[in-house]
Amino acid sequence: MATMKRKWGMAIDLDKCTGCGACSIACMQENNLPMFTDDSDSPKRVTFLDLMRVTNDRDTDKKFGDVETAFIPKMCQQCEGNDPKNPKPPCVSVCPVVATDVGDDGVVSQIWSRCIGCRYCQASCPYEARVFNWWKPDYEGSFKEGLSPDVSVPSRGTVIKCTFCSHIWKRERDRMLAKGVKDINAVLYTPSCASACPTGAIIFGDLNDQASEVSRLAKDKRAFRLVHTIDDKPEEEKKRLMAIKHYPNPKVYYLSSKQWIKDMQKFK
C-alpha cells in the first residue's frame, strides 16, 4: 500500500452558479440526512451544504439598482491550519472523544457513533459547517427505501458533517481493488454535490496534483476563500499574522469575477 498522496480540494465558480439547489438536494440524498415535516427552524437544520443567499445590502451607499445577489454553496471547508504538513483544523483538537480527525488526504472526518454530542467542535467551527441532530432523525415510512447503506443514519444528539463524501472514495477504491489496482493514489472520485452541479460550477480534485483543474482554479485570479481575508495581505504581513495564530486555511476555493462578493468577505 502506497502512502496517500492526494489532498482533496474543491473550487466553486460562482459565476456559473445559478443557485438552483441541485447540489444541496444531491448532498442530502447521498448522505441520508434526516427528514422532518417542518424544517423551517433553520438554525436547527441538519444540512451539510448550505446554499447561502448573499447580497451587498449592508453597503449604506448602495440603493435599489446597485445591489447584487449571489448564492454561495457552503459545505465543510476542510480547514488545515497554518501548516499543511501538520494539519490542525479548528475542530479536530477540541473533540474530547476523538470522534473527529483529519485524514492523510486532508479530509476532516467524523465518526457518527463516537460523538457524545458536546458540540465543542461546532463552537470551534468558523464556517458553521457542523450540524447537531437536535431532534431524532425521522424517515417516515417508505422514505426509508431511498436511504443509502453507505452512510450511517445519524443518531439524535450527535454532531455530523460533510466529509467530501469520503464514502464515495471508499466505493471507488473497492472498485479499483476489484480490478486489481492496489495503488490508493489511483483512486479518483467526485462528491455528490460536484457531480450533481448542472453547470459544472463545482470542481473537485487533488490539490497536490499541480495539473488538476482544481489546482489551476485555486490559483486563478478570481479565486478567494470564504472570510479568509489574510489571503489578500502582503507576504510579510501574512507571516506576522500567522505567528500570532492559526488560520483555517480551507481547501474549498470560490471563484468570482464580481468584486462585490470578494468585498463581502471582509467585515466592516
Partner: peptide, 10 residues
Amino acid sequence: PYTLKSIDEK
C-alpha cells in the same frame, strides 16, 4: 422534505 430543508431563512 429535502426541499423544505433548503428553504432560505428569509
